[in-house]
Amino acid sequence: MRSTHRLALLAGLTFALALAVSACGTDDGGDATPQPGTSSTGSGTPGSGTSSERMSAGASESAAGPQACTAAQLSLLVRPAKGGGAAGSQYTEIVLTNSSDSPCTTGGFGGVSYVGSGDGSQIGAPARRVDADHVLTLTLEPGEAAVQVLRETRAENYSRADCDPVAVDGLRVYPPNETHSLYAAHPTTGCASRSIELLEVEPYHAAA
């Protein structure tokens, strides 16, 4: 009986000791391992990185300089060029003004074509590019403009059979390196035949 009592007492002490050890291993602070969606670098928005990292990213963007001008940032004006034209042709200025609140860059050539039929359908061949060795990169501050000179050969210089003359409503203008276009009314006569190139453009330069 005494042996049995000792065994029962020993088992009870062992169980109590196990409970005490288990309690010591529990901490109200939870697991220190970072959980998904949290940052292990300290305070801050989960996944946003430290403030120094965000400042470094902002400095890099600033150092990169102005971005390329988009069609949404530009307004279009088409006007006669100084000097008018020559026999059989006329010169027109295509003016792109930065109408946004931020500077942007542009330069080189933009796409230009006649459109008509009341629905913006292209008429004839697009403008041919000349003077490619005078391409410049321009930074336009808000309100500043870039100018492209357009030479328009008169459709009347060609026979009706070759030209297939048609009424033009205006000009579709693509700013340099853009896939979105701008439109300006510019009534004239074009050639439906794309084998005849009536339009010729020079690179953009800064407005005087």
Rank of each mutant, 00 (worst) to 15 (best):
V115P: 01
D131G: 02
P176M: 03
L74Y: 08
P187S: 04
G12L: 13
S56I: 02
A57K: 11
G116E: 00
E200Y: 02
S113T: 08
T179R: 10
Q90H: 07
E93Y: 08
Y91F: 11
P34M: 04
A8D: 08
P66T: 14
A64F: 03
L198E: 06
A8C: 09
G30F: 03
S100K: 08
A57N: 07
H134D: 11
L19S: 12
A23K: 13
A155L: 03
A87Y: 12
A207Q: 15
G47D: 04
H5I: 14
T33I: 09
A206F: 03
N177P: 00
S121H: 05
A192G: 15
I196E: 09
P165M: 03
R160N: 13
T179I: 04
L74G: 14
H5K: 09
L136Q: 15
R172F: 01
D28M: 03
A57M: 07
A87I: 14
P36W: 02
R128A: 10
S117L: 03
L96V: 08
S195R: 14
L9Y: 10
D164Y: 01
S102A: 09
G25T: 15
L77C: 01
P36I: 03
G58P: 00
E93T: 13
A32Y: 04
E178I: 01
T97S: 13
E197R: 15
T70R: 14
L136Y: 01
C104K: 07
S22G: 08
